[in-house]
Amino acid sequence: MFHLIKYELRGKLLTILGICLTVIIGNLFLMTKVDSWQIGAPVLSGFLGGGALVVICIASLTLMSDYLYDDQGYLLFTLPQSGVSIMASRLITAVIQISIVMTVSVSMFCLLDQGRLLNAILQQVEIHELLYFILMHLWTVVSTLTFMYFCMVVGRIALKGNKVGKIGSFIIFFLLSIARTGLSVAIANLFPQMVQIHSVTTMTMNVGSMIFDIVTFGILFMATSYLLEHKVDL
């Protein structure tokens, strides 16, 4: 599995470097304008970071779609690797590359506004809250990607034609999203128990939907792994 991650990162190296360089150069340019543009500079830096994040997230989707629709699938799916390790390697690669881009964007932002926002945040919240916040984001990335990979694989298996499969995956994604959100809301209403994350602030979460999220993640992860190993036809 380590090797799978290594080669995925190597394959995405140019994309990651490209995005990071764009963010760095963009921010360096903005730094020269801090005095004249005032608040405009950090806002634009924020947009730049957001844009970079979107691009790397889309690139993370190709970690799966490239192998489902291109000849490279012949390389990956003939390796003696289980569906689980293929699936896990995709998620870990995605988390690593998204983290790299995030770190670069946030660092550049902090440099640009000379740590003012960071200081303000650190005064308001405690370190472990920040940690929790970061973990929650990673969890969101992982569970969302799992969900999307699942839809892609189901679309690929159900509709064999190239373009139809991709559109099909999107429709499946759309329908399943509605179903999932609906279920999550229903569960939250049925079991309104909340946990408080922190004693002072009001960060809370619903226990029911949290369990629901974890369970769906587990099911989708295993289902996608199974389908990758046993059902995908190239």
């Binding site: 190296l13 000849d71 490279q72 012949y74 390389l75 003939t78 003696p80």
Partner: peptide, 21 residues
């Protein structure tokens, strides 16, 4: 066919499957 057989089968496909990089 599965993980075990893939470890003992060496397959030459009719496609260009190597990474471009």
């Amino acid at each position: 066919p599965g993980v075990y057989t893939k470890s003992i089968v060496s397959y030459l496909p009719d496609t260009e499957y190597l990474f471009k990089w």
